[in-house]
Design a protein around this nucleic acid. Structure first.
Lengths: 341, 341
DNA sequence: ATTAGCACTCATTGGTGTTGAGTGCTAACG
DNA sequence: CGTTAGCACTCAACACCAATGAGTGCTAAT
């Protein structure tokens, strides 16, 4: 229902504002080489676009800036899917292929690169407990009274914990415990582990080891840790270079959010697959009302391996970011699918 | 060589400035209940202290603030070792005792608490490669072509990596590789592992496995990772609440430093044991010329288990911070020594 | 339907005077 | 002689004001 010219004007305003961070006036648009209308004409359309809620005016005698709704229209209908730069592609690909054997290394390194390429903050979430199951369990004696419990997930992720043993647990006991756990728990998704532990495992365990409640609670602890997805952050301070965040108080809320893993996880929940863009208040989180979050998921063999997100100001280079994430998530998905087959 | 009164005045200025973040004038000191001199007298001493380089004046008509040298004198000679609050002690102790079986959990959690109690940033460094040796090595098959390599250090720290295997490596081969590595590498400090790997291990390995260069380089990679100490951060944004860091540009450098693990490690190098205080430029790092760093080391059984640091403005509550770190490092040291014996 | 012209708005900038906290110096005091 | 009252001086911070100019909305002409 927008005229061709209105769409063009909206697009121009968003592009200009993304570049300059300053309200865009009718004159500056009229001067663009691909525009052949006078400032007055443009002003009329701008007034219409404002009435439709796509633009806003900081004050009467300033230019226009896009509203949340304006960005949304831009992302949904106007965006030019800017191709990713050749050199960036090469850098990302070689990196990812290089570190394939170390999921966390690959992913955290990729996050670093992406945040450098975009100058925004990148956030990566590891696999969650609904899609991860236990692959192997092991107890390794460390000293006379301590041992390391090691848990391997089907994603190749490993979690460990040093536990101090109660008196009178022999090497043999440990081997038996580990054997029992492997029997009962292999293939069990992590979110079910706790219940299985206390029903099927508990009974058998009591029959040949003393102090088994203590051991059970230690095991539960160790396994619980694994169930929580890991979060990697990179470029958290990039937000400080954005002119609209010159004010320390605005930035504080954002950086605090980034420090709080649980809040971040909540933010990433309810994401469907593919590339998602959430603009400003669409995030539903007070602290980042002035930020946009673009996310992509990585799946292999039906498992959700992780989620990559990029957080920047609403005035974000959507085309570039979406292009990059699209490429990166595709690349990772391809590589890991090949690995798992 | 400072008179009693001068010491008292210096102490009062530092205390006041730490509380208020504003230059301290002669009048406000004179009004303190424990002071019975006129502003004029105090001004004379202040001029002397400035000549000695212990105080500075932001501009002619402002009060005085402590110089680096002034803080140094304060920390070395004037500080009242403020006892740690009862409730803080209890909180820290229960936490540490609770999480003992998980070094990283305990330490990162302790860092969080300390940063909350002090409102500064806490930085924790894990054990370094000079004091850590290999305890156990294991290869765990994951799929047909992948396996998880697990490295356990004598500190109980575990590192892992998913590796993709070359064609034609059987389960049996893997068991033999793991056995060989355990034979040759157990007890070897990490900084020596690489050389042992290429001298003693390489020869034997070639005799019964093909493609061994590939496997060797994967192993080296995995072991290298373990050799690098882990860094935990908490409360990085606390610096933003300090009035002297209202300016985004000043803060950027500091937060960037905190994002760079290698730089942080460098900062922590050349620390002797016990509690150390480094004030402003004493750190020798441009970005934190306006910050102070208080550090404490944790050793168990001769090994350096880790270092805890607190980073705040030079205008830091030295008494409180030193007290807390003293208590915490002592507590951790005691607990882990008991664990290792 | 488009555009030129014009009056109007208002954030930003720079200059100016005032205020007040704090100093250094001198002279008086016990 | 150490201490203190008194006083002139300095200078950041603040408020006030006028000038500037980018940008608008509206109207009338094209």
């Amino acid at each position: 229902m927008l005229s061709e010219r209105q769409r063009m004007i909206l697009s121009a305003i968003v592009d200009d504002y993304i570049r300059s961070a300053e309200p865009v006036g009718s004159r500056s648009i009229s001067k663009r080489s691909d525009v052949s209308f006078s400032p007055a004409t443009i002003r009329n359309d701008m007034a219409d676009l404002e009435e439709l809620g796509l633009l806003e005016q900081p004050h009467t005698s300033a230019g226009r800036i896009p509203s949340i709704k304006g960005y949304r229209y831009y992302v949904d209908h106007l965006i030019r899917h800017g191709g990713v730069k050749e050199q960036d592609v090469r850098r990302l690909h070689s990196l990812v292929a290089d570190k394939m054997n170390h999921w966390e290394g690959a992913v955290s390194h990729a996050a670093t690169i992406v945040s450098q390429l975009t100058n925004y903050t990148s956030i990566v979430l590891g696999p969650d407990s609904f899609h991860t199951s236990l692959k192997h369990f092991q107890l390794l004696p460390l000293t006379d009274t301590t041992a390391v419990a090691i848990v391997v997930a089907n994603t190749g992720h490993v979690e460990h914990r040093t536990i101090s043993l109660p008196e009178g647990v022999s090497m043999d006991d440990m081997r038996r415990i580990a054997g029992l756990l492997n029997d009962k728990l292999t293939g069990v998704p992590f979110y079910k582990v706790k219940s299985v532990l206390y029903t099927e495992v508990a009974n058998e365990l009591t029959s040949y080891v003393d102090h088994c409640e203590h051991i059970l609670s230690l095991l539960e602890d160790t396994l619980k840790e694994e169930a929580e997805p890991k979060v990697f952050l990179s470029g958290a301070t990039n937000i400080l270079t954005q002119p609209e965040f010159k004010d320390v108080d605005k930035v504080k809320g954002i950086l605090d959010l980034l420090d709080e893993t649980p809040l971040l996880m909540q933010l990433f929940q309810s994401l469907s697959g593919g590339i998602q863009v959430r603009i400003g208040t669409e995030n539903g989180v007070e602290a980042i009302n002035q930020c946009s979050l673009v996310t992509a998921t990585i799946t292999a063999d039906g498992h959700l391996l992780g989620t990559i997100g990029i957080l920047g100001p609403t005035r974000m280079e959507y085309g570039k970011v979406i292009g990059l994430l699209d490429y990166l998530s595709g690349d990772l998905t391809r590589l890991y699918n090949r690995l798992y087959k």
